[in-house]
Amino acid sequence: MLKKTISLAVFTLLFLSGICSMGIAADNESDFVKLKAKIMAIDLINDRAIIAEKEFKLMFHYDENFEKVWDTRFLDNEGNQITPDQIKKRDRVLVRGKKDNGTIIALEIILLE
């Protein structure tokens, strides 16, 4: 009887921990954004882009010479690095990003046309 109770308790714990970890994975997956649409606006001074009426934050840091280095990757349709000023209003892009506290951060923007 004790053996059955312990086995049932262990099974229940394993089952519940599996359900909890699936919920966490689903939440993390829903934080990612992937969108094909046209650029409505791109503002490199204020580090943002409007794509399909959604605002994306463009990420950067400053190097040792205090020059802006983009952490958001800008690519052409073949996967080659391009400069962000090559992307213009009305260009069709694929943007991949993630949600972070109500902000959508653009991880990479791929120019499709």
Results as ranks from 00 to 15, higher is better:
K3P: 00
N80Q: 10
V69N: 04
V95E: 06
G97L: 04
E55Y: 01
E55T: 15
I45A: 13
D27C: 06
G79V: 01
F74T: 04
I50V: 15
F11T: 11
N80L: 07
D91C: 02
K98S: 11
Q86K: 15
S30G: 05
G102E: 10
Y62L: 14
S17M: 13
N46C: 09
D31P: 00
F56V: 02
L16M: 10
M1E: 05
I42Q: 05
P84M: 04
A49S: 14
D71P: 04
F32K: 10
T5S: 08
D85W: 12
E78H: 09
T5M: 08
E29K: 14
I24W: 14
L13G: 07
E113A: 08
D91P: 03
N80I: 08
K68V: 06
D100L: 11
I6S: 02
K68A: 05
G102K: 12
A52V: 07
A106K: 00
I6H: 01
I105D: 03
M40R: 10
L35G: 00
K89R: 15
N65C: 02
D63M: 02
F32Y: 15
T103H: 11
I51V: 15
I19C: 13
R96P: 04
D47P: 10
K99E: 14
M59R: 13
K34C: 02
L8S: 12
E53C: 02
A52C: 08
W70N: 01
D47Q: 13
L2A: 10
K98I: 05
G79E: 00
I82G: 08
D91M: 05
G23C: 11
